[in-house]
């Protein structure tokens, strides 16, 4: 077994921890199935778009949450598609799953970063640079504007088109370029972040006593 096969197996293992990995719902890129299904592929790549938006367009002086109407508009399609399919109203397609995943991920990342400013992690040096220091949920000035989130929608559409074009390709390079950020996203969000949150909370509790 080559190193590539072994690494792909490891990626599949991480994917299996968070995803059903049904073959008919998973994209086939670079001669391999991706570690997660189409919806999760979109969501994890969308998270990257969201983090880039936060990095580039956050308003450092603003205290209010990211534009909630845009966030709602971007998360609603995935939830509607998921529920509609689960309840048997319609059968979704991989294209719809992928695209709604992209939008969901791009909206989730700013919300997640903003939520960190309300958590015990807000004093952590790495996090401190990117979160509003005095987050106020009622503040009308959005920390991430509707314009910035609209740009996220456009980037999501472009990336969706790119990934869609790669579906079925045999060039292994594309498998790695897409699956590496996905697996990194799984590790960061499902392993590192919860552990950091817990440890920061425990540290805060201990410092009180």
């Amino acid at each position: 077994m080559s190193i590539a096969d072994e690494l792909a197996r490891l990626f599949d293992f991480f994917g299996s921890l968070v995803c059903h990995q049904l073959r008919e719902r998973t994209l086939f890129i670079g001669g391999r199935y991706l570690p997660v299904c189409a919806r999760d592929t979109g969501a994890f790549l969308g998270l990257l778009i969201g983090y880039m938006l936060v990095f580039a367009f956050r308003r450092k002086e603003a205290k209010g949450p990211p534009n909630l109407y845009m966030i709602l508009g971007m998360t609603l399609p995935l939830v509607l598609d998921g529920f509609g399919q689960a309840l048997g109203f319609w059968a979704s397609t991989n294209d719809v799953r992928l695209f709604t995943g992209f939008l969901f991920g791009a909206a989730l990342a700013p919300m997640l970063v903003y939520a960190l400013s309300l958590s015990s992690l807000k004093d952590m040096a790495v996090v401190k640079r990117f979160i509003p220091q005095d987050a106020v949920l009622d503040d009308e000035m959005s920390w991430l504007s509707a314009k910035a989130l609209s740009l996220g929608v456009v980037i999501s559409m472009a990336l969706f088109a790119a990934v869609r074009l790669l579906d079925g390709s045999e060039n292994e390079f594309f498998y790695w370029i897409i699956s590496t950020p996905i697996v990194s996203g799984i590790i960061a969000h499902f392993f590192i972040l919860p552990v950091l949150l817990c440890s920061a909370y425990i540290k805060k509790l201990l410092s009180r006593h």
Binding site: P65, L68, I71, L72, T75, L76, V79, L108, M111, L137
Partner: peptide, 8 residues
């Protein structure tokens, strides 16, 4: 999360 956004 959708419920939370609607609530906010």
């Amino acid at each position: 999360i959708l419920g939370l956004i609607i609530y906010l």
